[in-house]
Amino acid sequence: MQTKRSTFPAGWLPYALVAPQLVITLIFFIWPAGQALVQSVQRQDPFGFRTTFVGLDNFSRLFADPLYMNALSVTFVFAVGTTLLSMSVALLFAVMVNKLIRSRDGYTTLLVWPYAVAPAIAGVLWWFIFNPTIGILPYILDMLGYDWNHRTSSTDAMILVIIAAAWKQISYNFIFFLAGLQSVPHSLIEAAAIDGASPMKRFWTIVFPLLSPITFFLMVINIVYAMFDTFGIIHATTQGGPAQATNILVFKVYMDGFIGQNIGYAAAQSVVLMAIVIVLTVIQFRYIERKVQY
């Protein structure tokens, strides 16, 4: 990793400059992560008096636990659903806005603000709209013959949290797609138009392939978002229910470790999550260079 060609003489000063960042990172990030690793191979008795080393026992229990396997598949469905919904809607908006000239900024302003809404608040907003007793959408769905109830139906609850999570993320994807669309060379599109390609054909054969690096980058970001930043949505609305149908991994860690005080078991889950984040971060960084260059 580079520095400047000429640098200041080192002494104690550079250490003092990195110290605040380093101390906070060590105390609040590295140390707890190390603790999670240690605790994941231990078992504590319910009162915390005795700790015994149990090897990989917590992990084998974890993967034999139907509830954990359920959480894995729920997280998978939730992450894929959120990513697909949010990215496809955002791409549609970005393509439309990109066609306009004068009203581009106006629409952009109207579409970017949901980024500022906290996941938990997004959850409560949709929870309210879908309220089975007084909500406006169940009322409309009822007229169409669908009996919506996210308190009892697993499918309804999953759809609810996916919509809430995707709604908030549209603005993020929109900004990146719009930036990507604006860097597509105009001459290519004009050439295709002269050759008689219809707008649809131009989009699918020229624009969309050129957007693929950004699409890939957004996919990773959206999966990370759906897996790790949506705790608030679940906690503020379904609480993992009904019948574990929306119990995503991060919510399960919280319930098992913080509420259930099952420390070794929760630590093993933390370690699995860490492995997932590390894999996703590595993928994301390997493709950074490809993000902007076509």
């Binding site: 992560a33 470790g257 929760a266 933390s270 999550l273």
Partner: peptide, 8 residues
Amino acid sequence: EVRIFPTY
């Protein structure tokens, strides 16, 4: 989210 309990 991945190190809730030890950080607490």
